[in-house]
Simulated assay, not measured.
Amino acid sequence: MTTYSSAGTSLHDVLQLDRIEEDLFRSRLVYRDERALYGGQIAAQVLVAAGRTVAKDRSPNSLHLYYLRGGAASRPTEFRVQRDRDGRTFSARRVVAVQDGKVITTASCSFSVEASGPDVQVAPAPAVPGHPEDFPVYPAPRMFGLDCRLPPGPHSAEWPTRFWARAVDLPPGDSLMEAATLTYLSDRSNGIGGLDLEVPVVPASLDHAIWFHRRVNLSDWMLMDLVPHTLSAERMWYTGTIHDRAGVLAASLAQELLTRSRPTSPS
């Protein structure tokens, strides 16, 4: 059932897609919003569409996505999945997201069977004192079913580079839904807050990549940490990590942003 109001919307609502044909899906959730469709939502739904076409013994291991046009939250999105390959270990999918006959996003997704072997995490999680539940709420408009909190420390008022988050009322145990939730979260902020810019800029996502390393308990706190690396020719590149509360690395991400100067208001 299509939703036309964001009131009471859950993360489950965001991630549910209708199957139109074997490899064609449509988003259920639509709501009125003056801003462009949240990039994390479209990325998470892309992953769900691709995951619905692979064998149940395969879980997401990576997603690479390009934002080509701004989508609208008030219209449904169609997801057209191309089955590139199903090997013994990996499955590869390409997805095209379309609104009103125009491509808004293209993506490549990889899925793999569970494998054993060495498990090594080289770098520890960032040290953050205190308890996440004691920190102030980090408002997350248009991000449904996530509780986000800001730890103490230097932060950009608009784009913090470190915060805690957890999912609310999402059933556990589904590796595809876990990865889609991490994808949904991964676009929440960006690395601009880590730069000391004299001129304010308006960020717009150009491309996004995320790698899934380990399963995570989404109902417990996860720490997202973003690190800017370079800004040039109106394009900024940053990387990030998502650790669980115990410091285990669940996912890594990288994104490039378009960063044009914010128009000044006439005096």
Rank of each mutant, 00 (worst) to 15 (best):
T2D: 11
Y4L: 13
L11R: 09
V14Y: 07
L15G: 01
Q16I: 07
D18S: 12
I20A: 11
E21L: 05
L29R: 00
V30F: 02
V30R: 11
E34L: 13
R35Y: 09
R35D: 13
R35E: 08
G39D: 04
Q41R: 10
A43M: 11
V46I: 10
V46Q: 02
R52N: 13
K56N: 12
K56E: 12
K56Y: 04
R58E: 03
H64L: 06
L65C: 05
Y66K: 05
G70V: 03
G71P: 02
A73Y: 02
T77C: 04
E78C: 09
F79V: 01
R80F: 02
Q82D: 15
R85Q: 07
R93V: 10
A97N: 07
V98A: 06
V98F: 07
Q99K: 05
T105W: 00
S110I: 06
S110A: 13
V113R: 15
V113W: 11
S116N: 07
S116F: 06
G117D: 11
P118L: 12
V120M: 14
Q121G: 13
V128A: 02
P129A: 09
D134V: 02
F135M: 06
A140D: 10
A140M: 15
D147T: 05
H155E: 06
E158V: 14
W159L: 15
P160K: 01
R162M: 12
F163R: 01
R166V: 00
R166H: 00
V168M: 12
V168N: 06
P171W: 14
S175H: 10
M177K: 14
E178F: 01
A180N: 05
T181W: 04
S186H: 03
G193R: 03
G194C: 09
L195A: 11
P200G: 00
V202F: 12
A204L: 10
A204T: 12
S205W: 07
F212V: 06
H213M: 02
N217M: 13
L223S: 10
L226K: 01
L226R: 03
V227N: 07
L231S: 11
L231N: 08
Y238Q: 11
D244V: 07
A246D: 15
L249M: 06
A251T: 06
Q255S: 07
L258I: 08
L258T: 04
R260E: 07
S261K: 12
